[in-house]
Every structure is written in C-alpha cells, then in structure tokens.
C-alpha cells in the first residue's frame, strides 16, 4: 500500500463542558494527516461542526482517549477549559 491508498489517522480534539459525551463542546481542534497541515485560531466567526462529542461519534468519529479523571483535583483552583476527548477517523486521504 502506498500513502495514497493507505488509511490515515484524522485526529479530533474536543474539549467538552463535562466528562459526558452529551455535554457541549467548548474547544475544537481538527488535525488532518496531510504533510504541512497547521491548525489555526480563527480571526472571525468559527463555525462549529458539532455541538457535543456525541454528535461527532454519530458522524463516525471514534473516541481513542477519554478525559483523565484520575489526575490531581483541586476544589480551590481552576486549570484548563473543559475535559479533553481525542477522537479519530481512519480514512484514505486523496
């Protein structure tokens, strides 16, 4: 198989409001398996493809990492925004 016919891993980082797949997405990063691909913060209105993690799953994305809830927790401090899910789609990229 060459790179043209071999399925490649598309990655989707979704930061959800809570660890539930039904909660609203607060952060969105799509990484295409294409040489030179860069992510980019939008300077204008960003159109959200999905409202929840579940929407993405319905669209064929598979969750490969769930939020790490075993990490140290503080009830007196705030750290990152939301709970990170990592999803993938294995697809042939033309």
């Amino acid at each position: 198989m060459d790179a043209q016919t071999q399925p490649r891993q598309r990655l989707l980082y979704l930061h959800a409001r809570t660890p539930s797949v039904f909660s609203e997405i607060l952060g969105y990063t799509l990484i295409e398996p294409v040489k030179g691909f860069r992510v980019e913060i939008s300077g204008g209105e960003f159109e959200w493809p999905y409202t929840t993690v579940h929407d993405a799953v319905v669209d064929g994305w598979q969750i490969v990492q769930f939020p790490h809830l075993q990490s140290p927790f503080s009830d007196t401090d705030l750290d990152v925004v939301g709970y990170e899910f990592v999803l993938q789609k294995m697809e042939v990229i033309p």
Partner: peptide
C-alpha cells in the same frame, strides 16, 4: 491541543 474555543 486547543485551537478554537467557544466564546473566544
């Protein structure tokens, strides 16, 4: 791992 954040 964040790019676009709701409310930015």
């Amino acid at each position: 791992t964040y790019t676009n954040i709701r409310g930015q």
